[in-house]
Design a protein around this nucleic acid. Structure first.
Length: 467
RNA sequence: GGCGCGGUAGCCAAGUGGUAAGGCCAGGGUCUGCAAAACCCUCAUUCGUCGGUUCGAUUCCGACCCGCGCCUCCA
């Protein structure tokens, strides 16, 4: 059974198989590096990471291209204000974005591409559009004439046929033939960065970079083009217009859009004071894994309500997952293999994969994992889980973590090494045996102070670093 | 107005024409020198409202109410 994904173009969940059956060529709209990424941006990128990981888990190769928009109006405005080059302005934000990606454990796309390094490709594409009669010049800038592209609106399912050229012209945009026409190439303005090219001295419009770079690295028809839902219109619609007018071929087979994130039930905005970057949240003391878990746990096509209660719940949930893993690795089980337990592992794995195949239903997949954990814990307690069952259980857990990636704790906070902790734990046990509870409790308290929790189990004492 | 999404327990959330997954919280219990931690159990006769179809609807149809996104830059 292939992976099924919702395609915005057809408004249906469809079987997904890459065109060549093997390698998924996907392009994702990356960040505009004029600021730190906020958690809303990160929700979309988390979805992209989950998608990428699941495709790979399903034995597909990925050729995954992410763009970095390093030239746009906001960047230019800010750079001009600070009297530095746009490159000097964007680099720190690009670096910060890459750090955030690493913090949230995103796998690196095969290619990260910058807009400013692909001006030639954009110019070539604009020239091709001009040859096809798709463009016109006005005030030194070049515009795309949507009246010449009858399919305009097919992605966002809008009907623009009533808006024929010249029928309605916005007063503020007098230079355009049609209010929906968009700029491909902006004429140079004094004091702003520009590129002197065969189509004039100027800079690219926003949409052209994605068409140019996607086709440069992935060919004329991509398997998947993904991004935030707000990009559906006009950005992706315009990309289709630019690309398909030249190639005559579908630009992307699947268009996949992630819903937005809201914060405590409200739209995130600076004025509401609920605008957070990853750094903000980490500084408040939350773990990156909890952020990743929360962002991944709600299926990507649903709005995600980001709350601090939710972040706490995510932290606790991760703890439960890790406890299960710890138990699996440290408990001593009797020899043998229990058939029911084996069946449970196999069935749960199959159900987990089916949930992920079903348009990345992460909520359902997590439900299956937790149900499995509860049942397996019960089996462990009753002796119905044996040493021979461990490999299959670990295999299921690793399948889960292959895509969710939350089990491994971030770098340990405690200054104590594992062996030092082991030694203290042993000393406490000795004290306990000697019924010197004062000493035993003192060691316990001391360790707790440093974030080490001791667990006394039937098997003896084990410890873990507190979440 | 056009296009699109959603309303399931205190919170997050899955789901199906046959009678409600899972997580968090809360309550109870097991274990323990006491604890902690861990684990187990309990926790929606009900799925926005009103009609309809059906032997049967949360799930299908219709109407309505409420919330939200896009239509200008935006993940």
């Amino acid at each position: 059974m292939p992976i099924r994904l919702y395609n915005t173009l057809t408004q249906k969940v469809e079987d997904f198989v890459p065109a060549d059956g093997k390698t998924v060529r996907m392009y994702v709209c990356g960040p505009t590096v004029y600021n730190f990424a906020h958690i809303g941006n990160l929700r979309t990128f988390t979805f992209q990471d989950i998608l990428r990981r699941w495709l790979r888990a399903r034995q597909l190769d990925t050729l995954h291209v992410m763009n970095i928009t390093d030239v746009d109006d906001k960047i230019i405005r800010s750079a001009v204000q600070r009297q530095i080059s746009i490159g000097d302005y964007t680099r720190p934000f690009e670096d910060a974005f890459l750090e955030d990606m690493a913090t949230l454990r995103f796998q690196r796309p095969e290619k990260l591409v910058r807009a400013t390094e692909h001006i030639d490709e954009m110019v070539t594409l604009i020239q091709a559009l001009t040859e096809k009669g798709m463009t016109y010049e006005s005030d030194g800038s070049i515009y795309y004439r949507i009246a010449k592209f009858p399919e305009y609106g097919k992605l966002s399912h809008n009907d623009f046929s009533g808006m024929i050229a010249g029928a309605r012209v916005d007063v503020d945009e007098y230079e355009k033939e049609n209010a929906r026409d968009f700029v491909l190439w902006k004429q140079k303005k004094d004091g702003e960065p520009s590129w002197d090219t065969p189509i004039g001295d100027g800079r690219p419009g926003w949409h052209i970079e994605c068409s140019a770079m996607a086709m440069r690295y992935l060919g004329e028809t991509l398997d998947i083009h993904a991004g935030g839902i707000d990009l559906t219109f006009p950005h992706h619609e315009n990309e289709i217009a630019q690309s398909e007018a030249v190639t005559g071929k579908p630009f992307a087979r699947f268009w996949i859009h992630a819903e937005h994130l809201i914060v405590e039930g409200q739209k995130m905005s600076k004025s509401l004071g609920n605008y957070y970057t990853l750094r903000d949240v980490i500084e408040m003391g939350y773990q990156a894994e909890a952020v990743r878990y929360l962002l991944a746990s709600v299926p990507y096509r649903n709005k995600l309500n980001f709350t601090f209660d939710g972040l706490k719940a995510a932290t606790t949930s991760i703890g439960r997952l890790r406890n299960f893993e710890l138990r699996l690795k440290t408990d001593k089980f009797a020899a043998g293999t229990n058939e029911d337990a084996e069946k449970r592992s196999a069935d749960s794995l199959a159900r987990f994969e089916e949930a992920m195949d079903d348009d990345l239903n992460t909520a359902s997949a997590l439900g299956i994992v937790f149900e499995y954990i509860r049942e397996t814990n019960t089996a462990m307690d009753s002796g119905a889980f044996l040493a021979g069952n461990t490999p299959a259980a670990l295999q299921f857990l690793s399948r889960f973590d292959e895509v969710f990636d939350v089990l491994k704790p971030s770098a340990a906070e405690s200054g104590l090494s594992d062996s030092e902790i082991d030694a203290l734990a042993a000393e406490r046990n000795a004290a306990k045996k000697a019924r010197n509870f004062a000493r035993a409790d003192a060691i316990r308290a001391e360790l707790l102070e440093m974030g080490i929790v001791l667990e006394d189990t039937k098997e003896g004492t084990r410890w873990k670093r507190k979440a």
